[in-house]
Amino acid sequence: MTMAKANQAAPVPRASLTARAPDFVRSYGIFIFLIAAIVVTFAISPAFLSGANVSNMLMQLAPLGIVVIGQTFVVLVRGLDLSVASVMATAAVIATSFGGQNSDAALIFLACIGMGAATGLANGLLVTKRNVSPFLATLAMMIVLQGLRFAATQGAPSGNIPSLFRQLGSATLSGMPYNLLVMIVVAILFGILLHRSAFGRRVYITGGNPVTARLVGIAADRVTILCYVICGSLAALAGLILSGFVGVVDNFVGRGFELDSIVAAVMGGVALSGGRGSIAGALAGATILVVLSNAVVMVGMPVQLQIIVKGLVIIIAASLYVRPARA
């Protein structure tokens, strides 16, 4: 007691500052970094914040954001999902497999979500019931889906996407992309699910400590499987929207999204060790990826630097989140 008092009385705010800094960085660093990146880029190239460019960035953000939300659920329960990009491409192929009529839109939507959910279910079952590492389970599902897709399309997908989806993916409502509206709705719904619902609480407890979860009566396996199902379903939705944005379908719609979504989540403070992180943080991570990619071009640097910057940012961000070695 006396020691604590002495510390308080001593006029040495430095110690407490350095002690608190990591926590502060962990909680808000991502948002500060995001704002800083925007400000610096704007200073160099004012066109960065032009209506057209902002609208363009937001349109790119939407599909990534939706995938990141799903990925967040999976990472929270100590997993990761490498199959999201494959699910996205498969959704895009499904979208063109019908006549391209708007009347089929509902059917397409359900087929896509069903495919994504089924993939997630398979991932979740492999991880929980067979105890396969998430990395391998989702890697294998990624490859299987890719093969099935290639086989079904003979390597050259063709056909049309209903105009409804094309509009959803690429049109704007006075500058506000429709697809971003979809992302916002998804973020709110799943944000409530994760941060306000009983299920979300079970997700955090399961991810934070699977043994505790079981001992307080939570069906940890079921919670984990559901997280993979959510991730697969959202990836399918994102694939649908992205195919509408791209317009043409190929077998690689969504390529790179598996790694980008993990990177965004980790940068946003979602811990790979589970049980820690938020959807807001993960979306901020996704926004940074989009902003940095765009900024590289806007300030006139070669486009190849996008990926270099991405690599640097992930290593730096991840090392900031590493918790100091414990006793």
Partner: peptide, 17 residues
Amino acid sequence: GVHPLIVTLGTGAILQG
């Protein structure tokens, strides 16, 4: 102390660039 998965993902991106 960052997980090798993340580290090599990052350096992989840098090297590709």
